[in-house]
Design a protein around this nucleic acid. Sequence first.
DNA 1: TTGAAAGCGCTAACAT
DNA 2: ATGTTAGCGCTTTCAA
Lengths: 350, 350
Amino acid sequence: MVATIGDVARLAGVSTTTVSRHLAGQRIREAAAVQATIETLDFRANEVARSLKSGVTRSIGLVVPDVSNPFFAAVAKGVESVSRQLELNVFLSNTDESVERERAVLQGLVGRVDGVILVPAREETDNTAELRRANVPIVLLDRRLRGGNDLDSVLVDSPGGAAQAAEHLLSLGHRRIGLISGPLDTTPGRERHDGFMAALGAAGVELDPTLIRIGDFKLESGYQATLRLLGLPSAVTAIFAANNLMSIGALRALHHLGIRVPDELSFIGFDDLELAELLSPPLSVISRPAVEQGVLAMRLLRNRIEGAGSPKAQHIVLETRLLVRGSCRPPQPSSDGAIPATRIPIGNPS
Amino acid sequence: MVATIGDVARLAGVSTTTVSRHLAGQRIREAAAVQATIETLDFRANEVARSLKSGVTRSIGLVVPDVSNPFFAAVAKGVESVSRQLELNVFLSNTDESVERERAVLQGLVGRVDGVILVPAREETDNTAELRRANVPIVLLDRRLRGGNDLDSVLVDSPGGAAQAAEHLLSLGHRRIGLISGPLDTTPGRERHDGFMAALGAAGVELDPTLIRIGDFKLESGYQATLRLLGLPSAVTAIFAANNLMSIGALRALHHLGIRVPDELSFIGFDDLELAELLSPPLSVISRPAVEQGVLAMRLLRNRIEGAGSPKAQHIVLETRLLVRGSCRPPQPSSDGAIPATRIPIGNPS
DNA sequence: TTGAAAGCGCTAACAT
DNA sequence: ATGTTAGCGCTTTCAA
């Protein structure tokens, strides 16, 4: 069905070696004839066989927890923009924030890629053993990995970003703030939680544990967390959500509850949203470079693949930016200080 | 560095065949010893070698024009939900709406996957020849391909959806409508354009050619198209954008121009947005199943891979739904019928 | 410059 | 039930 290098060799009257050399760009006597035969047969070298022999795939894997998160989509854009120039194929894989999926995905990548850019699902679960044994270079993106300090990494200053959010709310006078955190066993979850708490602590503000809701970075958890926070007997005056998807969930909840932002409640989220400016009020957020993270990670990986990297791991940390738009203002005095629990509806965010 | 089947065989004192059989789940006498050796060596079968021999990869490719488009992200979710159960790896690749990228990506997939779900960049450019010669099953998703009628496909009723949008605007009394179309050499671009025009035509409404702006399905083109439409001497009273990203671009432009929706202009877009309900006004849209498209495509592909598909191609077409929220209302009488061109700012959508 | 031969790691007849 | 042998399609010593 499909022509092999042997077919080409036979038809062109040369050895497979010669054809192989021609493919590799070396000059051979019968170049013209061989090329003609290749075109006649529409021959294309079998990548699998080629990989098996040479150990090179000209592909890399990009493993993220959630492709439907616009942040990771942007990261992918960045990775691809440079891999395109390098003529490397990118295989994007989704772990759905699950360590089991991650293990399966990473396993499936062994032998099929020359390197991997990984956003680990959990800090404590290192699924890279297989890849490392196979000598596949790995670059960590956006999240650390316990025992992964020997790997190149590109991160953002999550503690700093969360602190920016906290300080913004504090400066407006908020003291009773709801925190919708990510999982504490992920880098951004933990660091944003800690950074936020630390900034509050530095201002002498102690957060009641009931005001801290641990979500899973997905939309629904932001929704549920918000319902909980607003069902509390003593109302919060502001909410900080630790990522884009949970922010959207939270905003949906507020919308369904009929709570006006920022009149009744201030809101700030980590990660910018495509539509942040178009919401009313326009959403204040902590933004961070996404495409750039992808670009830098791919450059680091390229160096590793080419063996040109410095012997010790490179760690890049990018800065966040506070974008003040319109979703935060000083807390409004309220008669009883509480939003009635009866305003909480039953149902789903959709 | 990495153990091979030969190492295991030697250490366990059996042949490689026996180990191979054990790997395949057959009963062998020395199962315990072999298993122990496998674990000692932390042996894992080389997938590339396995593929070369068996011709099976247990992987599929999902090739989309734009991973950062939430619609395709949702499709990917659907594909993955079923491929997970089938224990198939999914390699997501991005063509960035470019036929050249598509060709490169598809080429890179040959031999590496057992099947491909493809959203073709252009209707007229068929890059599937390689895959077909290698007997790789292909399912078309969301877009057709000239000469691809022999391939399974999962589409939505784009003409119908666009007609729903047109009829909605017509029923409100709009006659001078701006159309932000997708590329006419893509299925959804062409079909939504044609469906929209046909519905208008059926109502005796003829659209001035200057009211039709052809975008590229990306955000920026929606922004630019909107600036153009609003710079026209005679104002439009409504706009229909043919996909989610262009809708966002259009909304940004309207925001920057300070045009109030729906008071000054009605707006409806194809594709729902995560935040559609939270915008003010909540956005009216034509929605369509995304996850489901992925699920169905993956099921069709599975059947093909297993050789269980019916001999002739299956074509599935899903229905769209008009979601009336708050961004459309009857056109408002205006003194001169035009929005002054001077209101158009200079700059970018960001 | 070219080709013969070996082999990448695995699986599958075939024979035992 | 197990092993021998051949070979998937390609690249790469090694000699010529």
